[in-house]
Amino acid sequence: MILDVLSWIFLLLGGAFVIIGAIGMLRLPDVFSRSHAAGMVDTFGAGMIVLGLMLQTGGINLILFKLVLILFFIFFTSPAANYALVRAALADGAKPILKEGVDLQSSEKEEGAKPL
């Protein structure tokens, strides 16, 4: 019973985050920031939904193992695909939209003591 409620919460949370990630895909300005939103769908949305399904399997069995494998594959392949995509976009001459006038290097030396 508790497991059921917990799995419902996970499924709903995952569904909400999947939609939020898709909204982010629409709202963010360029391909670099959009890939953050896609990463959100890949990690948290997928992770929460699969976790919710795991709680419904009823014990340790083959289905649970397969779900764990799906989660593993998503988590290992998502950063690699993302990296290849962003690198290809950069090599093709896509310019990221950046905020002007941010000096990160100086704050690195002073260990972030300087307020921005």
């Binding site: 890939s35 896609a38 976009a89 896509a94």
Partner: peptide, 9 residues
């Protein structure tokens, strides 16, 4: 690249 990213998602 936007389209490929979308396809990946």
């Amino acid at each position: 690249y936007d389209r490929i990213l979308s396809g990946n998602m």
